[in-house]
């Protein structure tokens, strides 16, 4: 029983981390229409930054500076934001499909950098960073981390929801819907896209920091960049892009399916189980295609959400009169 609860808490932590990633991608793709397939790059940069800042001193790589957790998280947000700023200044004027191609280039270069520059990252041998909260509240790390994750997800969600409903969010949506008209309305499209791209990447960097501290160890292989990026995309599309609640629900549903495939493939005969990982990716890939063909707007579509909101407001108005 304790094992199941432990597993459930572990799963929820990862859902929270992926939920943050999906929220970050939702700012870029869902709200602004920026096609970023380099999610893993910002995720990894955030993770390594926080690892170097907070980890124990090491001979093998730069740092660690044993700084507090919050400094690490802040650092993660800043470095991934700076990377996004540099990348954004170069590529954000490009069309969505060119931006997509450019973003795989960035992800690939970041991956090569983390792997090659051992003095900074420990290279393929990886980086030990230790885990926070080990001796809080009776010493259950997973429980402590889960509470922490829930707090972070809640803060990020509330802030992004405020941003989405603010005039700023409306401008982003109008850029996505009709760039020319927005430009004609006197808005600097590039500036808004850059803001959205940087903000989304900062959120991804934050998720990276969470990930680093959750596992206490980092290596270029730990990220499986394509898998991480792909899962986040499937989450956002499944949940309904443009919609923060949808992004979180997508993260929950897709991670549960993803974990479910682990159980399912665990039942396979031993000689096939070594290839279970591939089978799981195959299943998620097929799931994505089915969603795209049958329900491209996702579980909670942006338009549907707006309709529901209008209906709620009408009902409220009806009750008042």
């Amino acid at each position: 029983m304790a094992g199941i609860i432990e597993y459930a808490m572990f799963t929820l932590c990862l859902i929270g981390i992926y939920g943050i990633l999906a929220l970050g991608l939702n700012i870029q793709w869902g709200l602004t229409g920026l096609f970023n397939i380099g999610v893993a790059a910002f995720f990894a940069v955030g993770a390594y930054t926080s690892g170097i800042l907070t980890g124990p001193p090491s001979e093998a790589h730069l740092g660690g500076f044993a700084m507090p957790l919050l400094v690490g998280m802040l650092g993660a947000i800043v470095t991934s934001g700076i990377l996004a700023l540099l990348v954004g200044l170069i590529t954000l004027n490009l069309r969505a499909d060119y931006l997509a191609i450019a973003s795989i280039g960035i992800a690939e270069i970041v991956r090569l950098f983390l792997k090659t520059e051992g003095w900074l990252t420990g290279g393929v041998r990886g980086m030990e960073i230790g885990r926070p909260f080990e001796d809080w509240l009776g010493g259950n790390f997973t429980l402590n981390f889960l509470i922490f994750t829930i707090i972070v997800v809640a803060i990020v969600y509330v802030l992004l929801e405020i941003a989405r409903r603010a005039p700023w969010g409306r401008v982003l949506r109008s850029i996505r819907e009709n760039e020319d008209a927005t430009m004609a309305a006197g808005k600097s499209v590039l500036a808004f896209r850059l803001q959205a791209f940087v903000l989304g990447s900062c959120v991804m960097g934050l998720a990276g920091a969470m990930y680093a501290h959750f596992f206490g160890f980092l290596s270029p292989e730990a990220f499986r960049p394509m898998l991480a990026t792909f899962l986040v995309w499937v989450m956002l599309i499944a949940g309904g892009s443009g919609n923060n609640k949808g992004a979180l629900i997508g993260a929950l549903v897709i991670w549960l399916i993803w974990s479910g495939t682990e159980f399912a493939t665990g039942l396979l005969p031993a000689d096939l189980s070594t290839r279970a990982g591939s089978l799981r990716i195959l299943l998620i890939g097929i799931l994505l295609e089915i969603i795209l063909v049958t329900r491209p707007e996702g579980l909670l579509s942006e338009a549907g959400e707006r309709k529901r909101q209008i209906a709620r407001e009408k009902r409220r108005a009806g009750e008042e009169t």
Binding site: F35, D97, A100, L227, F230, V234, S278, I281, G285, L288
Partner: peptide
């Protein structure tokens, strides 16, 4: 539908083909 949906679908196909090769 929009070409960008085809783009996303092709990313999915990329992973499907790769995992089939690994399988």
């Amino acid at each position: 539908v929009a070409p960008v949906i085809l783009l996303i679908a092709s990313v999915g196909v990329a992973l499907i083909l790769r995992s089939l090769v690994q399988l």
